[in-house]
Amino acid sequence: MQYSQKVLDHFMKPHNVGKLENPDVEATEGSPACGDQVTIYMNVNEKTHKIEEITFQSYGCASNIATGSIITDLAKGKTLEEAKKISWKEAAEALDGLPPVKMHCSVLAVDTLQKAIKNYEISHGLAEKESFSKQTIINELKKILYPKVGESIVTLKMVKYVGFEDGVAIIDVDIPKFDEHRDNVADEIKEHLEKYPEIKDVKVTM
């Protein structure tokens, strides 16, 4: 599948690019090792909680840059509560779709936005830091897409078991042995979970 014209437009001329001077909040998700990383900077009106300024920086492919551009367009002028409702599917639709294998870029962009919102809420006493539980692991797994179809491995019922004991997360995923995305899914699971200090080790069985 090819990129839509809208993806190409946002890729070639991305909106809201760069770093804000002294932003109220910033958040980074992804990693260069995995080939994509997004940082979002925001200024939020303290009274109205409206996102007044939002910019991004991206290390990644065309769809990574395009989703960073569209997500900042979508969030700009919205209140934090409104911006929380932006989903990765909505961001992808706003770009007239993304190839399934590139859908994870939309998840990463939305995830970064949500993390920025959360960081702002915590630092301004609007929310408390969530305590870590097995549900945190499940929520992270929901963000991992099966590249072949561009849908979450949880929604696709590919996750057969989630365990967490003594700092070790054990995830069992149903994925065919000769699937070309097998290693990628395992790497994504590790990348998503290893960022939690509560998790000392991640064991992925397939």
């Binding site: 995995c34 080939g35 994509d36 990644g60 492919c61 990574n64 294998v101 590249p147 070309e180 995305h181 290693d183 990628n184």
Partner: peptide
Amino acid sequence: SACASKGLKA
């Protein structure tokens, strides 16, 4: 780049 490969691998 992994992004340009079928299996998203380096």
